[in-house]
C-alpha cells in the first residue's frame, strides 16, 4: 500500500511569537483546495494529552492564537494541525518544540519624544505582555527579562550621533541647537537571550529660542 501524498495540504506549521503573543500559523500549496478545513491541537511538553483548541476546529483560515494556552514561561509546548480537504484526504503536521522565552521577538518600544528649546526628552512606556504572574498581575517585558535595557540614539547630522542607554525609561539629550530637526531611534536589548527589537523612530524639532525676542 503506497501512502497517498498529502504534502500539498499542509506546510510550515510553526509558532510566530512577538512580545509573548503566540500565534500558530501554517500554509498549504497553491494547488490545494480552498475548502480545506483545519483543526488545531496543542500540548505541554512532557504531558500525555493533546488538547483541542476551542475556536480553531474545522476552520478555513491558516492561523490560530495560542497565547493563553502557551503562556507558562517555564513550560515548552507543541502544536499540531490536521488538514482535511473536500476529497477526504487528510494530513497532520506538528511544530518544533516551542518556548516563548526563547522564540518571542521583541517589538519596537512605545516612546514619547518631547522637544524642548535645547533638549529632547524621551519617555519609554512600559510594555505589557499577555503573561500574568501568580497573583494575576500582568507582566511587562522588564519583569520577564532581568537584563533588558534601552539604547537611544539621536542623529545630529549624517556623521554625528549622540548615544544614551540604560534600564531606566526616561532619557534626555541636552545641549541641542534650538529650532532644529533631529531623528531619534530607540531599541530594546535583552543580552542573555540575544534579543534586539526593531527601532522605534521619532523625528522631532527643538523649539525656537524666544528668550531675546
Amino acid at each position: 500500500h503506497i501512502p497517498e501524498d498529502t504534502s500539498d495540504l499542509l506546510q510550515y506549521v510553526k509558532f510566530q511569537s512577538s512580545n509573548f503573543e503566540n500565534i500558530l500559523t501554517w500554509d498549504s500549496r497553491p494547488d490545494s483546495s480552498p475548502d480545506t478545513i483545519y483543526s488545531v491541537q496543542y500540548k505541554t511538553y512532557g504531558e500525555r494529552e493533546w488538547l483541542a483548541k476551542e475556536g480553531c476546529q474545522r476552520i478555513t483560515r491558516k492561523s490560530c492564537n495560542l497565547t493563553l494556552e502557551t503562556g507558562n514561561l517555564t513550560e515548552l509546548y507543541y502544536a499540531r494541525v490536521t488538514a482535511i480537504d473536500p476529497g477526504g484526504r487528510s494530513a497532520t503536521k506538528m511544530t518544533d518544540r516551542f518556548s516563548s522565552l526563547q522564540h518571542t521577538i521583541i517589538k519596537p518600544p512605545d516612546v514619547t519624544c518631547i522637544p524642548k528649546v535645547r533638549s529632547i526628552q524621551m519617555i519609554v512606556h512600559p510594555i505589557y505582555t499577555p503573561i500574568r504572574a501568580g497573583n494575576g498581575h500582568q507582566l511587562t517585558l522588564e519583569d520577564i527579562f532581568q537584563d533588558l535595557f534601552y539604547r537611544i540614539e539621536l542623529h545630529i547630522n549624517d556623521t554625528y550621533q549622540m548615544h544614551l542607554g540604560g534600564k531606566q525609561r526616561e532619557f534626555e539629550f541636552i545641549g541641542l541647537t534650538p529650532d532644529t530637526e533631529f531623528l531619534g531611534t530607540i531599541v530594546i536589548f535583552v543580552p542573555t537571550w540575544s534579543k534586539e527589537s526593531a527601532p522605534y523612530m521619532c523625528r522631532v524639532k527643538t523649539l525656537p529660542d524666544r528668550t531675546w525676542t
Partner: peptide
C-alpha cells in the same frame, strides 16, 4: 551565558527533531 544559548540554538532544531517522544520530559 549568551554564548551557551547561541551554541544551543545553533543545534536546537537538529537535536530536538530527533526526539519525537513528546509526552516525556
Amino acid at each position: 551565558l549568551q554564548e551557551l544559548w547561541e551554541a544551543f540554538w545553533d543545534m536546537k532544531d537538529v537535536v530536538q527533531a530527533q526526539d519525537n517522544i513528546t509526552n516525556v520530559r
